[in-house]
Nucleic acid binder design. Sequence first.
DNA 1: CTGTTAACCTGAGTGC
DNA 2: TGCACTCAGGTTAACA
Length: 272
Amino acid sequence: MPELPEVETVRRGLTPYLQHRRIAAATVREPRLRWPILAELPAKLAGRRVERIDRRGKYLIVVLDSGDRVILHLGMSGRILVLEPSVPLRKHDHVDWTLDSGRIMRFHDPRRFGAMLWWPAAETEHLLLRGMGPEPFSDAFDGDYLFRLSRGRSAAVKSFVMDGRIVVGAGNIYATEALFRASIRPTRAAGKLTRADCARLAAHIREVLAEAVELGGTTLRDFAGADGASGYFQQALSVYGRDGEPCRVCASPIRRIVIGQRSSFYCTRCQR
DNA sequence: CTGTTAACCTGAGTGC
DNA sequence: TGCACTCAGGTTAACA
């Protein structure tokens, strides 16, 4: 489900329901996520107030009044919804936070690649977040940065920009779309990009992510924001999932290949 | 260090 | 209906 725009959409949807609210109780029905949920998490959460929700890459960080934080990740299939307590439980509803408003924040994740981790106030840095690349909207991320880091790299440029140590937030959909907008074939060795290529690529990564955030993300299967609404960016997809269909620019057929075990799509004419 | 691959897990869709 | 198979928006660990 979630790349940066979807995670940001969840953050924005969640914030009005969680910010400045107290967590009355937490229930963990299935602790076996990507990493096990700390057994003491419900006890640690009970009575805490939520200061705010931050985002770093595809991670959500719930900051508590105690200074402790909870790191949330949605993996491939995770969803977080705020619901009335009368809504019946479904399969894979692994965690509930009951808020003092009476509503429930419910974490649902069929594939369990997601995570809910405790980050104590005393720890300045979390292992998971260490070594992450810059946010795509930050000043640190631009064409010069991409050019510098890509020198000598033989890996496909698509794998390169999906590597969270290079830049965070661009997953399979948006990396694919940004490469189309930048007219760069996803198989090109990162080290063979010119300065101009890198400048276009950085700009288009930022642009496509920003547009997707504004449209509430991409809903392919079951992505939904905290209020259950779906995103609208799928209507703006140029190549992702369009294998065999005509390019919207030149009408050449869009081709599907596999790079790094992930489906990739590109226009054989527009992208070199 | 870089690059590639398998692995984690469940469900939906397709073809026979 | 049932079965076999493929695919899915992420990330890490293990390996060459």
